[in-house]
Write a protein that binds this DNA or RNA. Structure first.
Lengths: 164, 164
DNA sequence: CGCTTCTTTCAGAAATTTGTGAAGTTAAGG
DNA sequence: CCTTAACTTCACAAATTTCTGAAAGAAGCG
């Protein structure tokens, strides 16, 4: 496996850590953030568990935990080369930020909590009305996001061409 | 100060805690989340420091810290009745979720980190191209969100009328 | 101008979260 | 079927975060 020479490992590491820090500040846990940033900055967008552990100086256990989170949120997918027990993790380049905007499940739960609030506090009370409005906002956003992503794909095609 | 009878305090508290839990899961700290949920479920959308402390069973210090966070993120504003040293905190009903979508500063920093990544890894490398695309996505979203909020306001007017 | 009431700051105790080593599990290859 | 390489799970130590009581800091009111 030829190392990609021409890449300054220190520059890569610097980017990885600084981008991970931004993700952490946005609420992501540290290890998932670092693993994700490492994948994002790898040339192929693919790394093995061992490579991740080595570059980030973390234990296999930490890699495992981070990857579990990242795959559950669909920011990363796992692959296996046929006839190997080496797992490979891939960031899909145009899927991960779609996953980012895709807080569907989260929004659904907010909506659930708000609906309960409206009915338990009373739809005819000021607080109930405030919650009903908030609920309407989330429902609105839910629809808009889908349309926005459609426009993005068109825009992207225009900027980068059909495949990326 | 007449207690609002007709409101079941237990139902209110149940909503407050369950909505706060959702906010926590989305990355907000516990105390800000609880304080915010309490305000949201109050009839006038306004509560004093003492009322918050009493309902949530937390110290004045905790209220202070939570409110500091909430005002910094523009989810809550502080008021003072003239001629009183009692602070009052208000959730604006149609401002707070605008603040929620308004991750302007956050997105700007992500963009900064990505720009650095593109230039330090090389715009002509696969990784550099992946980051450039991600950057383009954020720039796109930034513009779209503003337009979306404009549409929301129109939609809202249609649903609830001009003032709320 | 001092008293009183409310808010903020701060140090530290308590609780939670995080990452590791070690043991356990799965599956490829002989 | 056994060996071995790789990933995962688990208990615990360490680090971090969170919330409180106490003291300090503002600001109305007499």
């Amino acid at each position: 496996m030829a190392d990609e020479v021409g890449r300054d490992p220190e520059a890569v590491s610097k980017f990885v850590e600084s981008f991970a820090a931004q993700l952490v500040e946005a609420g992501m846990q540290r290890m998932p953030a670092r693993v994700f940033a490492a994948l994002l900055s790898s040339d192929e967008g693919v790394m093995s568990s061992a490579e991740l552990g080595e570059q980030l100086r973390i234990s296999p256990a930490a890699v495992s935990g981070a990857v579990r989170y990242l795959t559950m949120t669909h920011m990363v997918s796992r692959e296996r080369e046929p006839g190997s027990r080496r797992e490979r993790y891939r960031v899909h380049g145009d899927q991960w930020y779609e996953a980012l905007t895709n807080r569907e499940a989260l929004i659904k739960r907010w909506e659930g909590a708000l609906r309960e609030g409206v009915s338990s506090l009373g739809a005819d009370t000021p607080a109930g009305r405030r919650m009903a409005e908030t609920l309407a906002f989330f429902e609105f956003v839910e629809g808009e996001v889908a349309a926005m992503m459609e426009r993005w794909r068109a825009h992207r095609r225009q900027l980068f061409g059909g495949e990326g």
